[in-house]
Design a protein around this nucleic acid. Structure first.
Ligand code: FES
Ligand code: FES
Lengths: 139, 139
DNA sequence: CATCACGAAACTTAAATAGTTACGAGAATA
DNA sequence: TATTCTCGTAACTATTTAAGTTTCGTGATG
């Protein structure tokens, strides 16, 4: 697994959960499907839990589950829960003494903000129920 | 200097060039202003030269210069010349056997493609002449 | 022909991310 | 109550990517 895999992992996992929302999944199971490590899974899903998308329980019958109906969870919810903006705008800049740099940064930051907003709108139009759709896979 | 600084460096440099298009700048001068290394500057500007935005010349009076008028160079030109998509869509995926993953990837890739197109349109609406604008800075 | 600048290759350093190990806490089961 | 299962978290290692550096060759100028 490579870079920026957190979003992929989250989307994939919740896509499967949408197919079978009642099933309790352990991080070990999920990790095996995703070809990664249980701890990595817990790290990523932990953020989704913080955002109120997932519920986790400890102990014997423990594991992970959707916190609400699949129709009520959009791709934007997942994207925002991870707060790792795909739109990388250079970096956080200190106040530059150079006016050209400053003007540029203003312009680019403004464009990027619009673009991210538009990205979120697009993602918000699809739920995990739709994308997990007609599926009877092995997870 | 950190990550994804190539675009920043390119924009900043061309912004200054737009203010004073006749001046020949050496990579050493540019590097000093940008707080980086001449070789890094040549690497980045080299891509802009390949894209036909800049001209470089060797020798005594050598250095870098705009290949055309500042009014004819947009931020999109620069972005595209570097071809380092800010929109990181997970990664190049091998054909996945998992239909959920496949559906997800299709959806996300489609959204990302739209978003990038829209980003380029936005960037194309500003030229470096505009952003370098009313400037008499020290470069 | 000496100098200056780019071009490019090779290498080193630094940062970010994923992966791993390890252990504690809570919940169900026996 | 003891055992077992699973999450939560911290600390560490490994991998990957980008930036920075060194070095040498080439062409142009004076
Ligand atoms: S991974 Fe999507 S199915 Fe097992
Ligand atoms: S850096 Fe923009 S002015 Fe020197």
């Amino acid at each position: 697994m490579k870079r920026n895999s957190r979003l992929s992992l989250a989307l994939h996992t919740l896509g499967h959960m949408a197919v079978n929302p009642r099933k309790m999944r352990t991080s070990a199971e999920i990790a095996e499907h995703a070809g990664t490590n249980p701890v990595v899974v817990r790290r990523v899903l932990g953020k989704l839990r913080q955002a109120g998308l997932l519920i986790s329980e400890k102990g014997h019958a423990g594991g992970w589950q959707l916190a609400r109906e699949p129709q009520e969870i959009t791709l934007a919810d997942i994207y925002l829960a991870l707060d790792e903006s795909l739109i990388a705008t250079g970096r956080t800049e200190e106040p530059s003494r150079c006016s050209v740099e400053h003007a540029l940064h203003q312009k680019v930051a403004s464009v990027m903000a619009d673009i991210e907003k538009s990205l979120i709108e697009r993602l918000a139009s699809t739920t995990i129920a739709e994308v997990g759709g007609a599926e009877s896979g092995h997870l």
